[in-house]
C-alpha cells in the first residue's frame, strides 16, 4: 500500500482579548440584578413595549426616550433545546437544556439554562421563573437558570 504524501500546511491561532462595555442599559440591568435580584426592562415611551434585555433606544420607533420599569421574574417558555448526548454519541447522565423565556409584560426574551426540570416535562408556553445565583457580580450568570413555576406557588 502506498503511503499518501502528507498535505503541506502552516498552523496558526488568532487570539485577541476584549473587555466589552455593557452600555448604559446593561449597567442598570446588571446592577439591579446584582444588588436587588430585580429584572428591569426599558419601556419605549412611544410604542410602550418593554424591552428585555433593555436598551436605551427602541429599534422600532428609533427614539431614545425610554423609562425603566420593573419586570416580574416570571414568563412563558418560547422554546427549548435539550442535549442528551455528548458529541461522541454517549448518552449523558445529566442532560443540559437551554431555553428562551419571554418575561410577563415584556417584549423579547432571555436565553438561559433550564434546570430543576426534565425535558419531557417541559412544554412550549408553560410558565417559567428565574432563579438568581446566590453570589452575584453584575453578569448574565447572576441568573442561575430558569425553572418551571411550581404549582403550589
Amino acid at each position: 500500500m502506498s503511503k499518501k504524501k502528507p498535505e503541506m500546511t502552516i498552523g496558526g491561532t488568532i487570539q485577541v482579548d476584549y473587555e466589552w462595555s455593557v452600555g448604559n442599559a446593561g449597567e442598570r440591568f446588571f446592577t439591579e440584578i446584582k444588588d436587588h435580584k430585580r429584572i428591569m426592562g426599558a419601556r419605549c415611551r412611544t410604542c410602550g413595549r418593554v424591552m428585555v434585555p433593555p436598551r436605551i433606544f427602541c429599534e422600532e420607533c428609533f427614539v431614545d426616550a425610554i423609562e425603566w420599569v420593573e419586570v416580574e421574574p416570571k414568563g412563558t417558555l418560547v422554546t427549548f433545546g435539550d442535549c442528551y448526548f455528548s458529541t461522541d454519541g454517549k448518552r449523558l447522565d445529566e442532560p443540559w437544556i437551554l431555553g428562551i423565556v419571554r418575561l410577563n409584560g415584556a417584549d423579547g426574551g432571555l436565553i438561559h439554562f433550564i434546570k430543576e426540570a426534565k425535558a419531557e416535562d417541559l412544554k412550549i408556553g408553560m410558565p417559567m421563573e428565574i432563579v438568581f445565583s446566590d453570589e452575584r457580580k453584575g453578569h448574565i450568570l447572576d441568573i442561575s437558570h430558569f425553572r418551571p413555576v411550581k404549582e403550589s406557588e
Binding site: W20, P53, C83, T87, L92, W96, L98, I140, L141
Partner: peptide, 15 residues
C-alpha cells in the same frame, strides 16, 4: 453580554 457567556458555559460546546 447577554448570550455568549451562557453559550460558553454549556457542558458540551460542540452540541
Amino acid at each position: 453580554i447577554y448570550n455568549r457567556p451562557i453559550c460558553n458555559t454549556v457542558p458540551h460546546a460542540e452540541s
